[in-house]
Amino acid sequence: MTATARYGLDAAPPELRLTQELLNTAPTSKSADLLADLDTARGWLAEILPSPPDLTAKGLADLRELRDTLQRLVRGEPAAFTGAIKITIDGEEAKATPTANGTAWLRAATAAECLVARATGTWPRLKLCRNPRCPVAFYDRSRNASRVWHDVATCGNAANVRAFRSRHQTFG
């Protein structure tokens, strides 16, 4: 099961799908870190890539670092990463293709996705759940892009109840 499917989420559009999957490897209160160890990370890679790279301990550390960088970017914090990509422009169509191998390919592929998503305007719709204990990445398909919870019934409801009780707390 893909990281996104385990939360019952709609997949992001193609230009953000790999990025969303990588973000959703983070641990939550209900699920383990899919990049916790080599075996778990290899299983995750095998689910999302047709020909997953051979993952080493250094590659695993690179994936965790990339996930952290992507989380900062989605939150709107300054962050940067690089990846080897080839940009091809043919008439009206532009294409960004990763040129690296191994986990460097994954870094380049997510760099290309971020670039394309920013160019197409879909980037602001990739969000992290506002619940601080729930780093689930979701794609906001609402008309005005105003969603803040990956699931209102779980994360949103608990936060809304806490806010309500806080506002209506009586003293005495």
Rank of each mutant, 00 (worst) to 15 (best):
S29Y: 13
K30A: 07
K30S: 13
K30V: 06
A32C: 01
A32R: 09
L35V: 09
L35E: 12
A36V: 01
A36P: 07
A36S: 12
A36L: 07
D37W: 03
L38V: 06
R42V: 05
R42Q: 14
R42M: 14
R42L: 04
G43D: 14
L45S: 06
I48K: 11
L49Y: 08
P50N: 11
S51Y: 04
D54V: 11
L55N: 12
T56P: 15
K58T: 08
K58Q: 14
G59F: 13
G59D: 14
G59E: 15
L60D: 14
R64N: 15
R64L: 07
E65T: 10
E65Y: 08
E65A: 13
E65R: 11
L66S: 06
D68N: 09
D68F: 03
T69V: 14
T69I: 13
T69Q: 11
R72V: 12
R72L: 15
R72I: 07
L73E: 06
L73H: 10
E77L: 09
A79G: 11
A79Y: 08
A79C: 11
A80I: 10
F81I: 00
F81E: 02
T82V: 05
G83V: 04
G83S: 01
A84S: 07
A84G: 04
K86N: 05
K86T: 04
T88R: 06
I89T: 13
G91W: 06
G91M: 03
E92G: 00
E93L: 12
A94L: 14
K95H: 07
K95A: 08
A96T: 04
A96K: 00
T97Q: 10
T97V: 15
T97W: 03
T97G: 03
T97C: 02
P98M: 04
P98I: 02
P98A: 09
T99R: 13
N101Q: 13
N101W: 06
N101S: 13
G102F: 11
G102P: 02
T103P: 11
T103A: 06
A104L: 13
W105D: 13
L106E: 02
L106G: 03
A108Q: 01
A108P: 09
A108I: 03
A111N: 01
A111H: 02
C114I: 00
C114M: 11
A117N: 07
A119D: 06
T120R: 06
T122S: 15
W123E: 10
W123I: 08
L126Q: 05
L126D: 02
K127R: 11
K127F: 12
L128Y: 09
L128S: 10
L128R: 01
C129D: 11
R130M: 09
N131E: 14
N131W: 10
P132N: 08
C134K: 07
P135E: 02
V136W: 05
V136H: 03
V136P: 15
A137G: 07
Y139V: 02
Y139Q: 04
D140H: 06
D140T: 01
R143V: 00
N144F: 08
A145M: 11
S146D: 10
S146K: 13
V148G: 10
W149C: 04
W149H: 01
H150Q: 03
D151L: 00
D151I: 00
A153C: 02
A153Q: 10
C155S: 08
C155Y: 09
N157K: 04
A158P: 06
A158C: 02
A158I: 08
N160C: 00
V161H: 04
R162T: 11
R162P: 12
R162N: 03
R162G: 01
R162M: 02
A163L: 08
S166I: 01
S166Q: 10
R167H: 12
